[in-house]
Design a protein around this nucleic acid. Structure first.
Lengths: 207, 207
DNA sequence: CGGACCATTGGCCAGGTGGCCAATACGTCC
DNA sequence: GGACGTATTGGCCACCTGGCCAATGGTCCG
């Protein structure tokens, strides 16, 4: 392998970044050219180095991995980005793939799985960890919330009741109630409390 | 440094484990003698290798890091265990330190911070990341739920109402209501829905 | 252009919610 | 032994909840 694949690492966990860099640099197929601990720095380093493949953590404080991915792909539509995740929340996976990620690898994956994924990513293939594929299947069979419903969901999380939600959104309590009813049905929840819990499980709401 | 500090790594993220091992073995102060991807294996490897210091991830599928810590300390009360965390949820930190962890290091910490923490741990000092200390302060000022309240909290998460909770726990709906009222007050929540959301934020409930 | 989906709103109603008052009983800690 | 925290229970009440019925416009797609 004469020319190694040039990599950019974006992950807020410095320990993970250092570890990944050590591991990948030990393999002559790869060369980590830069590492960032937040999305903004990551974008800047991408412009500077134009890596072959970018490894991007999904969950980061500030601009999330997904947002970073969108920003990156908006500027460089052909960028090869492989998402790394610890959470495996379905929502993130679907959104990442929709936003043009080349693949989605769990941090629980074996190192060999990661290196294979990087090779595939550079070759333009789409790769998803086996453990993650099943999650996508689940998600496909469940419903998607509309943007209005997501908006209401965030207010439910804050403990708001229907009248207050209606007032805040400039609609009647009856409409707010209709949105809540739709959320309950789509998330298969008995009440708004379970709806919020399930939203956390699916990654619709984040800690 | 003639005799390196012998380390055991327990983390379900293989990538993180491999990375950590690479990084730490590059430093002659340390020698990673074993790595496990779940708590049970970790315990077995501890018995086998008796490492000087154990690095233990807080969140793992199956037996959690906290439970693993308790089991380990029950068997080897003098074990030096350093917790590694990605979530930084307050609850985990407090519980880990209460269960006898030597320290609690965020995965966002710089590598130097980690190596320093390992040295301190082996010296019997207690170390906590700066970023994590502030969280403990927050927690100290807030209230602790009783075990009964935690039990009720888990039922709220499932969308149960007071009569059903009472029935399940063998108490009246009035008592269930009293527990819920206590939860709301302690978590500073307007209703049970916000209580569940705040519980996720604090690490009392997990995805 | 008609169908599909969405956001919006209305009435009605049995049942649950959360806050207020107060009381008993059982442990532990000083 | 007494104070304290916890678990337990009661009544009362204004308010909110979620499910049922049905209807109106808007947009987007084939």
């Amino acid at each position: 392998m004469p020319t190694p694949i040039r990599l950019l690492l974006i992950d807020d966990h410095a320990v993970m970044r250092a570890g990944l860099a050590n591991m990948l640099n030990a393999n002559t197929d790869f060369k980590v050219v830069a590492g960032a601990d937040d999305a903004a720095t990551g974008l800047a380093l991408y412009r500077q180095h134009k890596p072959d493949v970018t490894l991007l953590d999904v969950s980061m404080p500030g601009m999330s991995g997904i947002e970073c991915l969108r920003a990156l792909r908006a500027e460089y539509p052909t960028a090869y980005v492989l998402m790394l995740s610890s959470s495996d929340a379905e929502e993130d996976i679907v959104q990442a793939l929709a936003a043009g990620a080349c693949g989605y690898v769990s941090k629980s994956a074996r190192p060999a799985e990661l290196t294979a994924a990087i090779h595939d990513a550079q070759a333009g293939k789409r790769v998803v960890s086996a453990a993650i594929e099943s999650r996508i299947a689940e998600h496909a069979s469940s419903s998607t919330l509309t943007s209005r419903e997501i908006e209401v969901l965030h207010l439910l999380r804050k403990g708001m009741n229907n009248p207050d939600i209606g007032h805040l959104l400039g609609i009647t309590r009856r409409t707010a109630k209709a949105h809540v009813a739709a959320i309950l049905q789509k998330l298969d929840a008995a009440d708004r409390t379970e709806a919020v819990a399930r939203a956390f499980e699916r990654g619709l709401l984040k800690v």
